[in-house]
Computed example of a mutant assay.
Amino acid sequence: MILHEWYRSVPEDLRAGLRALLDDAAGHDAEAGFPRVRPDDGPDVHHLVVHLLPDEREVVEDRGVPVLAAYLQLRVASDGTAVARYVVRPDLRSRGVTTLLFEKIGLDVHAPDGWAGTGAREVRIWARGDHPAARRLTRRFGSHDISRTRHQWNLLAPVRGLRRDDLLAEVPAAAEVEVRDVTGPDEPAAVRGMLGTLAGDPPADGALVRVTGRSGVDGAVWVDVTADEATEYGTAGRIHGPAVWPDGRADATRAALLVAAMEEIAGAGLPVAALVVDGDDDRLVHLTRALGFVHERTDAEYLLR
């Protein structure tokens, strides 16, 4: 049996336990590169905290004491579109917590006050690793409009001992594109305007930026050498992008930006570069393969509407 409660701000008496749950999940999922969830408050944020009551048949020290089992964070925009992030305590996964939760709160986004009273009319959530539990959930609640809308590939490329000439031999057009640092006073705004074209989460504050285009910005890539992401090949630096304006030189621009980002990560002494790409972007997928990236994990976005 589960207990659940919605909050607009996480109560003080739950914060310590929730932080412990999220820290435990972050440590458990770190090697897979899953993003860390934080219980941030805000005017558009709803928090759902889930407790699990121990099965009476189990031998436990604190029989009947609820265990903090899961946390869902929902950010609802003024138009009713919402983005959810969800974490289940690692030692309680595959116990049916999520199925029980949605059986209790339902998935009705047509109610006058939106899903579960949050005002959400459309909810998007990513299944990192496209976990089988996510697909089971869509089958279980097949009468509702839950669909797998898109997928992303998480890629890794070794960069230790990187030779720029070797990369350019695979994508020679990249050598014709000048890549530089952000310089002009108007460029940061143009770079921020490209954020919407990026795959994955926005880059961390302080990430280095490289851009192309002598007059204005034609493309940009963000490089975070402090991401501290554990992989089976060692600690990775994270590449966000590349984002480019679509034109006849888009492929060459993306290639040049990726080469510059890989050089940045290698120069920081890191052994591997991590990158997320849209699995349906065949041209970019082909380009990353030419540059030595290999598939690590597939993430899938699910939509409830």
Rank of each mutant, 00 (worst) to 15 (best):
A133Y: 04
A127S: 15
V182Y: 00
A174G: 05
A204Q: 12
A174E: 03
V159N: 01
A169L: 06
A190T: 09
I146M: 14
R192S: 10
A174L: 07
F141Y: 03
R136E: 13
L167G: 02
E176T: 11
R163W: 01
V171K: 03
V123A: 08
V191G: 02
P132G: 13
R150K: 15
E178P: 03
R164F: 05
L167I: 03
V177F: 02
E178S: 10
E170I: 01
R160W: 03
G142C: 11
T149A: 08
T138Y: 03
V177L: 02
D130T: 15
R180M: 08
P202R: 12
R163M: 04
S147N: 04
L137I: 05
S143K: 12
T118K: 01
D145E: 11
R139Y: 07
T183L: 07
G196H: 12
P185Q: 08
F141G: 00
L167R: 02
G193W: 00
T197N: 05
R148A: 15
W153Q: 11
R163E: 13
D165I: 07
P203Y: 14
A127E: 08
G142K: 11
S147V: 13
V171W: 03
W153K: 00
A173Q: 14
L167C: 02
A175P: 02
L168Y: 01
R148K: 13
E187Y: 03
A157D: 06
T183K: 09
P132A: 12
D165Y: 02
V123N: 05
L155C: 04
A134S: 15
P185Y: 00
R163L: 08
G196D: 08
T138G: 13
T149K: 07
G161F: 09
G161M: 07
I125R: 09
D186R: 13
A175F: 05
A120S: 11
G119Q: 06
P203V: 12
G184R: 15
G142Y: 10
D165V: 09
V191M: 03
W153S: 11
E170N: 06
G161N: 03
L198Q: 04
V159G: 01
W153F: 13
D181W: 10
R135I: 01
L156Y: 05
T149H: 06
V182I: 09
V159K: 00
D165T: 10
G119R: 05
L155N: 02
P172T: 08
P203R: 15
H144Y: 14
F141T: 00
L162K: 01
R148M: 14
G129R: 05
D186K: 02
R163Y: 01
P172R: 09
P188W: 06
T197F: 10
A127K: 00
N154D: 13
E170A: 15
R124A: 13
Q152A: 14
G161K: 04
R148L: 14
A133D: 13
R139P: 01
I146N: 00
R148E: 14
D201G: 00
T118M: 02
L137V: 04
E122C: 10
R180D: 03
R128G: 07
I125K: 04
I146H: 01
R150W: 14
H144C: 05
A127C: 04
R121V: 07
G196T: 12
T183G: 00
R160G: 09
G193Q: 08
